[in-house]
Write a protein that binds this DNA or RNA. Structure first.
Length: 456
RNA sequence: GUGCUCGUAGUUCAACGGUAGAGCGCAGCCUUGUGGUGGCUGAUGUUGCGGGUUCGAAUCCCGUCGGGCACCCCA
């Protein structure tokens, strides 16, 4: 396990890890904006009752309280938000008059959940959400779009292949109703445990807690076993011989998402009828995402369609969204050694200092480089050049700049590529490093098949 | 919140109840103002914390705090 936290569940990255995280954040912003999503941020704090959409999640909310609160203000009724979707729904309702619909927004913020942390699960973590919210109605094609945008983002990152698994609440609920279930939420929660406890124990749950007949339970398990990379799941579901209008609607929606998304981004999406999602406000398409080869780490991106999350008496704002678990993804990449950063500092150049008397000359070089967008720093002390080179080497700064020195008798400046050892004459007004050296590069570690061995 | 497990140098880990050590890293020197490899030398610990048993505790016991894992739930 990578050592990334001292306070359990509140991760703090080392500089090399932060470079990786920042690359993901930058890429997310770029891809989201490329698809026309505007940026929003909501406050970190929400009224607790606003967030209580799901009974199970209540106990995970961190409550806000002043240290020296008096008795009458002891309970402010405020808590740190545990996701970005619910606060966004609140924001939409509050500012609806000033917003244009359909509203396409992305939101990258920290969220807090009071769970017991373990690998890939934190108490403080960053989510990168996109949502599209309509007024009164929201066109179905946005449910395809969410998968396409997220797939596009994941494909832009130096990470193992990711597959978005899609299911549909209407399909599942319609099917459950069709086999005689009365509490579809119970069935859903039982099915959600398939990965964890296996079909046999799920069958018991279905028959006892959800009250299904053995035949109905068997059909629900058969449904959950269906997974296809295309729309052929429809025939497999039909073969189970369950009739229900909601089911039919779900089938056509899910096949539209799978075929639509895969038409744009082949292989990005699979229909997986086992995907349930715990949150109960989803009403249509639901998404989960696994990193191929690292399925045990859990979903790195999830979301779904919701119709009633942002609604008041007069108006409803149905939406669909998907969220990238940035912190989880980064923790997997670091723990498994899947991604490497070329350097942890922004500097492309270290400007050496011959002696303290000539520091100004080195600062001038740095200014000239910075004026042209070349990140650089000046050596902290006028040590022997060997030490200054080592300073750069330790930080993987690729170039060391030696200003002309009267003491040395050198006529002009030189710059040394400390990886190759090549040292050439250079002019701070014109010298340019290769593009790939300008900024820290984040790239997939070459041999990812052996990387998993370094996981601990 | 429940259960299990682990806490020794910066780090990874040793040490039967009997003097706290090694690798890596770090610092210095060989190296003459240009590093990396190599050689030599050196520094660093309230053994998480508090109590108990014992002639003697890193080691055994109790408590506590912290880490990890599983349950729960989820990005």
């Amino acid at each position: 396990m990578a050592k990334i936290s001292r306070l359990s569940g509140f991760p703090e990255l080392l500089p090399s890890g932060r470079v990786i995280e920042q690359h993901i954040l930058d890429t997310a912003r770029e891809i989201f904006e490329l698809h026309g999503f505007l940026s929003l941020e909501t406050r970190a704090v929400e009224p607790v009752e606003q967030m209580q959409r799901d009974g199970e999640i209540d106990k995970e909310i961190y409550v806000l309280r002043r240290l020296q609160a008096t008795a009458d203000e002891a309970d402010l009724g405020l808590g740190l938000h545990f996701d970005l979707t619910v606060p966004f729904a609140r924001y939409v309702l509050e500012h609806a008059a000033a917003l244009e619909f359909p509203l396409r927004r992305y939101q990258i913020q920290k969220v807090w959940r009071g769970e017991r942390p373990q690998e890939g699960r934190f108490r403080e973590f960053t989510q990168a959400d996109i949502d599209v919210v309509g007024k009164d109605s929201l066109a179905f094609h946005h449910e395809v779009e969410m998968a396409v945008v997220m797939s596009s983002l994941l494909a832009s990152l130096p990470i193992p292949r990711a597959v978005i698994q899609v299911n549909n609440r209407k399909l599942a609920e319609g099917f459950y109703l069709g086999v005689g279930a009365t509490d579809t939420q119970r069935v859903l929660r039982a099915i959600d445990k398939l990965d964890k406890i296996g079909p046999d124990r799920v069958r018991v749950l279905l028959e006892t807690e959800a009250g299904l007949t053995p035949a109905a339970a068997a059909k629900c398990l058969a449904l959950a076993a269906i997974s296809t990379p295309d729309a052929t799941f429809v025939d497999q579901v039909r073969a189970l011989d369950v009739r229900n209008d909601l089911l039919d609607q779900g089938l056509s929606e899910l096949s539209a998402v799978v075929t639509g998304a895969n038409a744009e981004r082949p292989g990005s999406v699979v229909a997986d009828l086992r995907i349930a999602r715990g949150l109960d406000y989803y009403t249509g398409t639901v998404y989960e995402t696994q990193l191929v080869g690292f399925e045990a780490a859990g979903s790195i991106s999830s979301g779904g369609r919701y119709d009633d999350l942002a609604s008041d008496a007069k108006q409803s704002y149905p939406g669909v969204g998907i969220s990238l678990g940035v912190t989880r993804l980064v923790s997997i990449l670091i723990a498994k050694g899947l991604v490497t950063a070329s350097r942890a500092v922004p500097s492309a150049v270290l400007v050496a200092v011959a002696d303290e008397a000539s520091r100004a000359a080195s600062e001038l070089v740095a200014r000239q480089l910075r004026r042209r967008g070349i990140a650089c720093e000046v050596a902290p002390s006028a040590d022997k050049f060997g030490k200054q080179i080592r300073y750069a080497d330790r930080r993987a700064i690729p170039y060391v700049w030696f200003p002309a020195s009267a003491a040395e008798g050198t006529a002009g400046d030189t710059v040394k590529d400390i990886r190759s050892g090549d040292q050439v004459d250079a002019d701070a007004a014109t010298w340019q490093p290769p593009l790939e050296d300008l900024k820290p590069k984040v790239f997939a570690t070459a041999d990812t098949s052996t990387a998993s061995k370094e996981s601990s």
